[in-house]
Simulated assay, not measured.
Amino acid sequence: MERKAYWSLILCLLIFGIMGLVGHIHFKKELVSKLSNEVEFAEAEVREKKLDKDNYNLAVQHTQQEIDTVNKEVKELEDEIGKLNQAKEEKDKEVKTCKDSMPGLSNDIAAVEKEKNDIEGQKAKWIEEMNGLKQKLQGPSPVCAFANITEENVKKEPTIKDLCPKIQIVVKA
């Protein structure tokens, strides 16, 4: 019986050993499964981080392009402002020149207005003088009273009768 007990003992030990090995294999499989899951999660996290990094790099590139575009536009605007400032300075110089010439022009205007007023005053005198001359022309000439006009003179100069309508022709005998 000793042999049977020995075999039973070996068989029990063998079953316990196999069961231990199966348990150990099962434990290792669970451990491998957990590690695989952790590796998959870590790989997924790495992929996600890589995608985030790629997205961040794309956003950085896009932002850098926008910054470059804005810097280019700012430079163009600064150039345009420089040109406009030059034009403004030229216009300011022209305005200053005009303002500086204003007193001289005011003096010229005052002189021209004075001359105009003088001319208007002379015009009134001339009109008065012309009216007096017209009245004298309409009346008989004082010369006619002293003129010794003969018929021959009237024939030679018929306008004499127009100048002196009331003359009496002296007839020579």
Rank of each mutant, 00 (worst) to 15 (best):
A145N: 11
D52I: 06
K166I: 08
N131A: 05
E40C: 06
D79R: 13
E43A: 02
E115I: 08
A145V: 01
E45M: 15
T150P: 09
R3Y: 03
E66Y: 06
D79A: 11
E89P: 11
K99F: 12
I149C: 02
L84D: 08
V39F: 13
E151A: 11
T159I: 13
Q135R: 13
L35V: 08
V60H: 07
E90K: 08
K155E: 03
Q135E: 15
D68P: 06
A59N: 07
T159K: 05
F27V: 10
C12V: 09
C144T: 00
A145F: 06
L77V: 12
N148Y: 06
V74G: 13
K50T: 05
G132L: 11
E43L: 01
K88D: 13
D108G: 02
S8F: 06
A87I: 07
N117A: 15
L11Q: 04
M102D: 12
I160E: 09
W7P: 12
G17V: 00
I127P: 12
G104T: 15
K72P: 01
K116V: 01
K29G: 09
F146I: 10
V170M: 07
E30M: 00
K123A: 01
L133K: 09
L11W: 02
I25Y: 00
K114V: 10
L21P: 07
T159R: 11
E38N: 14
A110F: 13
M1D: 07
P158W: 00
L105A: 05
N57F: 05
S106H: 12
Q135Y: 07
I160D: 00
K116E: 05
N153L: 15
A44P: 02
K93I: 09
S101R: 11
E152H: 06
F146C: 08
H24D: 06
K50F: 03
K83V: 10
K114M: 03
M19Y: 04
A110I: 05
